[in-house]
């Protein structure tokens, strides 16, 4: 069954200080799919994510979610930033951070209630972090920090989840847990858009991929877009790993497996 587009990007050019980092992107992302944004460093992955989240304004074109401006649908999305983007010495417990996902703008009196605490506890359990609920966040490992960020995003109960390299600097156990959670979300009919670095694992865990190298190289199901031509256009042709990746994908398409336990 063909699913509906949840993200619609048209003629999108965006960047910083009047220097475009991405040019004339045109693609759609299907609902209920696990989609990866892939490309080398400097290919504009983060810029594209910032456009989708409405953190920067595009120079031309648009990035719509559910056919609307992102500002209209913020209650339906959530975001897991890179864990390096914050100061972990901040005085907050794990519970405090997860509760941050529960705030919704609009009301004057914005204190949190019992329902919010229950939701936060639920997601702490789901991410396996409930025993650390009262720990100061600075004492967490890299993988635990990423799980706290995931729990904070999921506490918003989003239909569409954005993640920025969630597996970077994360231990194998946490990576497995995070991947398991993401898989469950897809099974529940939610959509995921993830900026991802590792090409080998991408081939195994993603449904769809957007290959980016400041311009769009290809977008679509992994089994279709992961071919030699596209990957060398994205990463440059001198990567010997490319043929291995293509082999893997064609042998084993669209399967969820822990990327850390596989050898390329």
């Amino acid at each position: 069954m063909e699913s509906k587009p949840i993200v619609d990007v048209h003629n999108l050019t965006a960047g910083y200080r009047r220097r475009p980092a991405i040019w004339n992107l045109d693609f759609q992302i299907q609902e209920g799919k696990f989609t990866g944004i892939l490309g080398p460093n400097g290919s504009g992955k983060s810029t594209l994510l910032k456009c989708l989240l409405g953190q920067i304004t595009p120079y031309t074109g648009y990035a719509h979610l559910w056919g609307q401006n992102v500002d209209k649908v913020r209650h339906r999305i959530a975001y897991v930033p890179q864990k390096e983007s914050v100061d972990w010495n901040f005085p907050a417990t794990v519970m405090d951070v997860v509760l941050m996902g529960r705030y919704r703008p609009g009301r004057f009196w914005q204190r949190l209630g019992k329902k919010d605490k229950e939701a936060a506890l639920y997601w702490l359990e789901q991410t396996g972090m409930n025993h650390l609920a009262n720990r100061q966040i600075g004492q967490l490992s890299g993988g635990q920090r990423q799980r706290v960020f995931l729990a904070r995003a999921l506490a918003r109960e989003p239909s569409l989840l954005f993640l920025d390299e969630p597996f970077a600097g994360v231990d194998a156990g946490s990576a497995e847990r995070i991947l398991h959670m993401l898989k469950l979300l897809i099974e529940q009919g939610k959509s995921i858009v993830m900026v991802h670095h590792d090409l080998v694992s991408a081939g195994k865990i993603l449904d769809n991929a957007i290959l980016l190298n400041t311009r769009l190289v290809a977008s679509g199901p992994v089994s279709e877009v992961f071919n030699h031509e596209n990957l060398s256009a994205t990463y440059g042709s001198d990567l010997s790993i490319l043929s291995d990746v293509i082999d893997l994908v064609t042998r084993n398409p669209g399967r969820f497996k822990d990327p850390r336990n596989q050898k390329s």
Binding site: L53, R74, P81, A92, M100, P105, R111
Partner: peptide, 21 residues
């Protein structure tokens, strides 16, 4: 009245922005 929001903004301003604050 909006103490939780001040917490969120002080910790992670980009996340707070994507929440529509």
């Amino acid at each position: 009245p909006s103490w939780p929001i001040w917490k969120s903004i002080s910790f992670d301003i980009d996340f707070a922005r994507t929440q529509g604050l």
